[in-house]
Design a protein around this nucleic acid. Sequence first.
DNA 1: TTACATGCAAAGCATTTGCAGATAA
DNA 2: TTATCTGCAAATGCTTTGCATGTAA
Lengths: 150, 150
Amino acid sequence: MLDHNKIYNPLSNFNKAINKLSANGIRPTKQRMILAKLLFEKGKRHISAEDLFDEVREEDRKISLATIYNTLKQFTSLGLIREIVVDQNKSLYCTNKESHYHLYIEDENKVIDIPTKNIDLNIPSIPACLKLHDVDVIVRIRTLKEKYKN
Amino acid sequence: MLDHNKIYNPLSNFNKAINKLSANGIRPTKQRMILAKLLFEKGKRHISAEDLFDEVREEDRKISLATIYNTLKQFTSLGLIREIVVDQNKSLYCTNKESHYHLYIEDENKVIDIPTKNIDLNIPSIPACLKLHDVDVIVRIRTLKEKYKN
DNA sequence: TTACATGCAAAGCATTTGCAGATAA
DNA sequence: TTATCTGCAAATGCTTTGCATGTAA
């Protein structure tokens, strides 16, 4: 059921997402709507499949992990969210639609958005013909002590 | 067995690596020596565990994958190589000891080093107290066509 | 009605771990 | 000798897939 917020805010990220789904012939099923709400009605997020799975349960609903993974992949293909690979055992999904990069603090397993203007890329080695589709920048910082001596 | 190259080039990356091993009480076993040779006597490389496994076999030797993974992890802890997580199912290990960042071309599964001077990081949001141990920057570019329409 | 979605369990895959046997010092 | 290392196979953990069932249009 629609609430007033959505009725009077036709350009919300949630509504844009739903529009994009139908524009691509993808059915607005119960599961997709629940996930879209969690992703797009809570501000900018960096969230994992497992996190979403838990949030769905907290609402006393249930969506299988497989469906969550498949939906996240689909939303990513549609450009509704961005996947950030922070380490080999975890992908996070980012709902910030503005142009930005990511700062990953390994010790805390935490991701912070960095405005694009804060990083100047000067990469003459990219062939001019490459026609970039997307550029992700992950700045990974560690504060760990060295484990071995010099 | 040592060859002339090593005898007369005491500052080679290979020798530095071996020195670091013994400085940390880590035995220069047959397996570690073979891996160190492959890593440090072939110039700058971006190589996976599986790649190394294959290269060892090409020399008609055999080191188990488990040992290769463990050794790579250990060399990384020692700071001899750097791990680059290019996607969730693959880590590459980089033998370039100079300060640099990484450009990952997803379509080609290829990594190129970027000199640090080509990227200006201006990240006021990092708390000053954090005392960075290391900063990895991965610029991930895609040239794929969009799969879905707008 | 029917093409598309979902959920479950099983499969996949890179990586890690437990442990018995091997090896360096 | 003995602490460390290696190799195998099994375990792990995230993610994907096959397929039977369910559902939107």
